[in-house]
């Protein structure tokens, strides 16, 4: 059987090699790929959209429609994890609470939500291991900076490498860091499952909504230029702003979905203690 697999792999590889015979040299500036459409992007990006980062302008404007679906793909992944993994009825029979100041753990037989509101107690898992103090301190210290940087990456996508996806991922990572270094419940306290769900839908909604807004204003879908009708700017700047709006939407969705995928996967959908 193993030989069959190897044969299959070799077969595919040989087709790949065969295809390569005809390829242009690596880095050849005169390859067809570099001559047909891409020069247009490089030449027109500034005058069309006033965005110096051509990757961003292609991403969110010339091929903005792809990117909308790309965001939807992310959203879908979060949705899929929700549908597949989320268990609404927890199977845990007993509940454990920890008194924060003293570290005493209360074991309560049967389900209870009696102490959930109390600030002195936190609900924990039976296999709970106290979070490390060094980890906690450092991450508490780092997370604001990470988040600030994330916002910068989102906002500065027009001028430097960055944009919604990258920023969103960094933002999500900061929250995941919180969940890892403390526990999942702490992360969920900062941003609840409901919030994540709504955020993930809102982000994509912003993207698609901006597109639909262009439609309502009488032009093609995602034709940001028409936004100048409602914004006090000229069509080129309107495109730039449109791109920015879209990037924000992307960032929100990516952040929310990243965190919720982590939440569902790490807790097998129970959203209890996590890793």
């Amino acid at each position: 059987m193993r030989y069959l697999y190897l044969l299959l792999v070799v077969l595919s590889a040989s087709v790949l090699f065969y295809a390569t015979l005809d390829f242009p040299q690596w880095g050849d500036p005169n390859s067809p790929a570099s001559l047909h459409v891409s020069p247009v992007y490089l030449q027109r990006s500034l005058e069309d959209t006033s965005v110096p980062n051509v990757v961003t302008s292609v991403l969110a404007d010339y091929r903005g429609y792809d990117t909308m679906f790309e965001t939807t793909v992310i959203f879908t992944a979060g949705l899929a994890c929700f549908v597949l993994l989320r268990v609404f009825a927890p199977k845990m029979k007993d509940t454990y609470y920890r008194h924060i100041q003293s570290g005493v753990v209360l074991h309560i037989k049967g389900q209870t939500t009696l102490l959930d509101g109390s600030r002195d107690f936190e609900r924990i898992d039976s296999r709970w291991v106290p979070a490390d103090i060094i980890l906690k301190t450092i991450s508490r210290f780092l997370i604001p900076f990470i988040q600030l940087f994330a916002l910068y990456v989102v906002a500065h996508g027009h001028h430097s490498p960055g944009g919604g996806f990258q920023g969103g991922v960094i933002l999500g990572a900061s929250i995941i860091l919180l969940s890892i270094s403390f526990d999942l419940r702490t992360g969920l306290e900062k941003i609840h499952e409901r919030g994540l769900g709504l955020f993930s839908a809102t982000g994509v909604f912003i993207y698609t909504g901006i597109g639909a807004l262009c439609l309502i204003l009488g032009k093609e879908f995602l034709n940001y230029g028409v936004l100048s009708k409602i914004l006090p700017v000229d069509p080129v700047m309107a495109r730039s702003l449109g791109i920015f709006g879209v990037e924000v939407g992307v960032a929100i969705t990516v952040m929310a979905v990243m965190v919720s995928i982590y939440n569902y996967v790490s807790s097998e959908g129970r959203l209890d203690e996590g890793l």
Partner: peptide
């Protein structure tokens, strides 16, 4: 695109 929009709203309603 409205398919997308409507599906986002459908999901968001889970939380509302």
């Amino acid at each position: 695109t409205f398919g997308l929009l409507l599906s986002f709203i459908t999901y968001a309603m889970t939380w509302i």
